[in-house]
């Protein structure tokens, strides 16, 4: 049997807004993914460690703190440091992210950024498409 897509939903940093992360986690689980939720207030190191140890296909980082430009690159750096492979792992960011920063995050290698109001269906479709695509070594189009 084909392995289910494994997704780590992560709250990184000090912000406690977990409504989005939890609702998305629940919907991804209902869509048939295997979902691990980190819980609150994780450091970038902890998130990266969990991503590598759990051997996930997708890391979804939720932030509502405005600290994404600091924390997201940190998570990515630690993933590589702990032996994770960013060329295969899909990195998603969700939360309040201004448009300029969305571009910058994508340039840093984030696969997708989802702002409030995004239908979760769209996140699910994105993951289904992007995970195999990235494993085949294709570049992101979005």
């Amino acid at each position: 049997m084909e392995r289910k897509i494994r997704v780590l939903v992560a709250k990184v940093g000090l912000d406690g807004h977990d409504r989005g992360a939890k609702v998305v986690a629940r919907f991804l689980r209902d869509a048939g993914f295997e979902v691990i939720y980190t819980g609150l207030h994780r450091t970038p190191e902890e998130v990266a460690m969990a991503a590598v140890q759990e051997d996930v296909d997708v890391v979804g980082i939720s932030l509502h703190s405005g600290a994404h430009m600091t924390l997201v690159p940190k998570v990515m750096r630690y993933i590589e440091e702990y032996g994770g492979d960013l060329s295969e792992m899909v990195i998603l960011v969700g939360g309040i992210v201004p448009e300029d920063d969305i571009q910058k995050l994508k340039e840093m290698g984030v696969d997708g950024v989802f702002i409030p109001g995004t239908p979760i269906e769209r996140i699910i479709d994105f993951i289904r498409k992007r995970v195999p695509e990235k494993k085949r070594g294709e570049k992101a189009k979005a």
């Binding site: 000090l14 600290a67 924390l71």
Partner: peptide, 16 residues
């Protein structure tokens, strides 16, 4: 309750 010079505060000082 974390000071601005704590490593945990990095990137969050004065943000929200």
């Amino acid at each position: 309750g974390i000071d601005s010079d704590s490593p945990l505060a990095d990137g969050e000082v004065g943000k929200v």
